[in-house]
């Protein structure tokens, strides 16, 4: 019975593979379409948005609504994970790693934090942005949990703090969008405030602020996910 099922699965796979290959090889090799949005964006992005990084301009200005949907997906995943895994028990700590590792990370962690902030804030000048920098910030909480024990992480940033950080980041994003409506434009229009010329740090209107909001939201979200997942796994290790 299971032999038949295996053969059936391999037939499905090979049919799918042949279909995909045959269809895709008939696609044109050249990608050139006169009506494409590529032309408009690469010709006008610097003038219209003020950011040197075109990918950031698309993500946080032309298609900022997609970034709103994407950060809501992370928020929904975090809520779902907390719904399923959280119990009102006190965190049980592990011993953490050895002394050398603890000392090394004691010296490294501020630099990791600085690096994360650098990537978030320079999103419009170099590769980076809110999502990438947010992941780096989230990894600091994960480092605390692994290297120093989850009780240390609980005392430093309790889950309440992380929830407040996450929701503040999300509210900052939506607030900037609504501010666009209040100031007479449409939702998520690029407010050209505090603009000091293309190429400097304070430029590109509201893009750095959206980056900051998203960075905190992603960082806190990843920290909450990790903390919820390890909550019950240290019980056996305590009596080591």
């Amino acid at each position: 019975m299971s032999k038949a099922k295996n053969i059936f699965k391999i037939i499905i796979l090979s049919l799918l593979g042949i279909t995909l290959l045959v269809h895709f090889n008939k696609l044109p090799l050249q990608f050139e379409y006169a009506n494409s949005i590529y032309h408009h964006i690469t010709n006008n992005a610097v003038k219209e948005t003020g950011s040197l990084n075109f990918v950031t301009a698309i993500l946080y200005d032309y298609r900022a609504y997609d970034s709103l949907g994407e950060s809501t997906i992370i928020f929904g995943a975090v809520s779902g994970i907390v719904l399923l895994l959280s119990r009102k028990t006190l965190p049980v700590s592990s011993h953490g790693l050895s002394f050398i590792v603890k000392r090394t990370f004691g010296m490294l962690t501020p630099f990791i934090f600085l690096f994360g902030i650098y990537i978030i804030s320079h999103g419009h000048l170099s590769p980076g942005g809110g999502f990438q920098g947010g992941v780096i910030l989230g990894s600091i909480s994960i480092i605390f949990s692994i290297v120093y024990g989850s009780e240390f992480d609980y005392k430093r940033y309790s889950p309440t703090t992380k929830t407040l950080l996450e929701t503040s980041g999300a509210l900052l994003f939506i607030g900037l969008g609504l501010l666009g409506i209040v100031m007479g434009g449409n939702f998520l229009v690029n407010l050209k405030i505090l603009n000091s010329g293309v190429g400097s740090l304070i430029s590109a209107g509201s893009i750095p602020f959206i980056n900051i909001g998203i960075g905190f939201k992603i960082g806190a979200g990843l920290a909450i996910i990790f903390y919820s997942m390890i909550q019950k796994t240290f019980k056996e290790e305590v009596n080591l």
């Binding site: 200005d61 609504y65 997609d66």
Partner: peptide
């Protein structure tokens, strides 16, 4: 959204 006319924006 964002004040961009289609098809540039959403």
């Amino acid at each position: 959204l964002g004040g961009w006319i289609p098809p540039i924006g959403i």
